[in-house]
């Protein structure tokens, strides 16, 4: 059987069977690694950090899969773990290095430009810088809606926030980014 033939619910059941545990988990990884990787990458930015966080995420999933009760969709549970792991890494990093807001902005641009795994053009750099000015939670909401095009209901399950508050938060974030881009792209051109 291939991974395409199992539903998420079947995978959860398969995981409970000791003899199929590893196989079920391998299918789970192959199904979600890419989506989770890009979600994490947009939060932590560097590939190395994203790789670490993705590994920790799947390790946590492996250790806690038995406790998944199926009250929410499997992928929202996975996204929640990935988001928490990514935020934990950012917190750790922030504790070790502290910059002023201006320094942080220029450091962020340097990090992007020097990243061997980022080949975005000027507009992409400015977009990332604009997203980086947002508060953490707003940034995650913006990424999930703008890039991953998740529904508000899905984001609501991942972040455990009401749909109304998510809509307001996304609108506010998009407005700030639009203004940032307007100012910075006009200035540069």
């Amino acid at each position: 059987m291939t991974s395409r033939e199992y539903t998420d619910a079947e995978l959860v059941e398969l995981f409970k069977d000791k003899s199929h545990k590893q196989m079920a988990f391998k299918i789970l990884i192959s199904r979600y690694k890419e989506r989770l990787y890009w979600h994490i990458r947009k939060i932590v930015i560097s590939h190395d950090d994203a790789d670490d966080v993705l590994q920790n995420t799947f390790l946590k999933i492996w250790q806690n899969f038995d406790s998944f009760q199926g009250k929410s969709a499997l992928y929202t549970w996975l996204y929640r773990i990935a988001t928490n792991e990514a935020l934990t890494l950012l917190k750790k990093k922030r504790k070790s290095v502290q910059f002023s807001i201006d320094e942080e902005d220029s450091q962020y641009e340097k990090q992007l430009v020097n990243d061997p795994y980022f080949d975005g053009d000027e507009i992409q750099i400015q977009l990332q810088k604009a997203i980086n000015t947002l508060p953490e939670k707003q940034r995650i909401i913006f990424n999930l809606k703008y890039f991953e095009e998740l529904k508000y209901e899905e984001i609501s399950e991942i972040l455990e926030t009401t749909v109304g508050s998510l809509k307001a938060s996304y609108h506010h974030a998009a407005k700030k980014i639009e203004a940032y881009l307007k100012n910075n792209l006009v200035e540069k051109s």
Binding site: K33, K42, H47, Y117, D119, G120
Partner: peptide
């Protein structure tokens, strides 16, 4: 968004 990954990274991840 302009981000990419090392060659074969996702394929060998499992």
């Amino acid at each position: 968004a302009g981000f990419n990954v090392p060659d074969g990274y996702l394929e060998s991840f499992e």
